[in-house]
Amino acid sequence: MPTTPFTRATASLHGLALGDAFGSQFFVPANRHALSGRLLPPDPWQWTDDTEMACSIYRVLADHGAVDQDRLAASFADRHDFDRGYGPATNRMLRLVREGGDWRALSSELFDGRGSWGNGAAMRVAPLGAWLADDLAEVVRQATLSAQVTHTHSEAVAGAVAVAVAAATAVREPGLSPGRFLDRVREHVPESMVREGITEARHLLTIGDPVLAAQALGNGRQVSAHDTVPFTLWVTARERHDFEAAMWTTATAGGDIDTTCAIVGGIIASSATVDFLPPEWRSRCEPLPDWAGVPPLAS
């Protein structure tokens, strides 16, 4: 792999933010007509909590080379912007961490002690997979650590592992067929509904309609990992060499569009050149926050 962990993670984060910002526009009623006609929504496109949390992962990796859970939890809490669209449980947890609460206890106590199985750990993790792509075992280990800071349920962890491994696989083996791509990801995902969904996604690769695929796999409407990740991997397997096609395909299925587009964008940008992200789209997207220290993409 000729690229460095830093450049790969940087590209992945830019792709994630662009997908997130693009997808978030379709929650604006006036923009929904643009989806059927594949018309770009008016700018500026603002990113959401998906990107804000991904920036924390990127910053911790850049500073420490691995996931330090205490520092990651502190960054999530310190950078938490209530207006970025966080879920209520995460809003409350991050506020309590800022006030001195123990993130380990708060995370594990969510949802009557079951922990969250939401898609939040998966939506932010693609840059980690890109950064650690040289070692898939480490990708799995570090993705698990990154998830546990807010999502302790095994399904949420499996979702994060699947997305991180997908990003690493996009870097390591860009020429894989769609079926082999999903096979490679599935090999590293623990037994779970997420893993079962990836198996189903492979069976559905011959279906060209994302709405039909999402009916079987989910589109994030339930905001759970197993309702989100399999569909995003179905799109990624089919469209990972065409960013624009991947975004429109993902958005067409509806659901949690900012998150599904963020996941797909982060994965497929991991091994991309700068030209892979369309310049017109990039010009519409809100810049990444200064605190993240992310180099801008060249024009």
Rank of each mutant, 00 (worst) to 15 (best):
A160N: 10
A17S: 15
L39K: 15
E244Y: 01
V171G: 00
L145Q: 13
T144G: 11
P210Q: 01
F111Q: 15
N119Y: 04
T144C: 14
G254E: 11
L39M: 15
W234V: 01
R79T: 14
P210L: 02
T3N: 09
F111V: 07
T232H: 06
G100R: 14
A272W: 10
G220Y: 04
A237Y: 00
M193E: 15
E244M: 13
R202S: 03
A21Y: 05
A246W: 10
T4D: 09
A167R: 12
G23L: 12
F243N: 01
W45S: 07
D43L: 11
A121R: 00
E155A: 04
R92F: 03
F111A: 08
A237I: 02
T169G: 05
A77C: 13
L16I: 03
V97P: 00
G129Y: 07
E196I: 09
A201P: 14
A21N: 14
A17R: 06
R221Y: 02
G37K: 13
I263N: 07
R92S: 12
F111H: 15
R221D: 08
N119V: 08
L217C: 12
Q69I: 11
G23Q: 06
R141V: 02
R59P: 08
T10R: 11
G85L: 09
L233T: 06
G175E: 11
G197M: 06
R172H: 05
D63P: 00
Q222S: 15
D81V: 05
F6A: 13
G159Y: 07
T7F: 02
R284S: 14
L13P: 00
S36M: 14
R184M: 12
F27N: 01
L110S: 13
E280N: 10
T206Y: 09
P5V: 03
L35E: 11
L288H: 05
A213I: 04
T152V: 08
E187N: 05
V171T: 08
A245R: 15
R59N: 13
R71F: 00
F231N: 06
A62G: 00
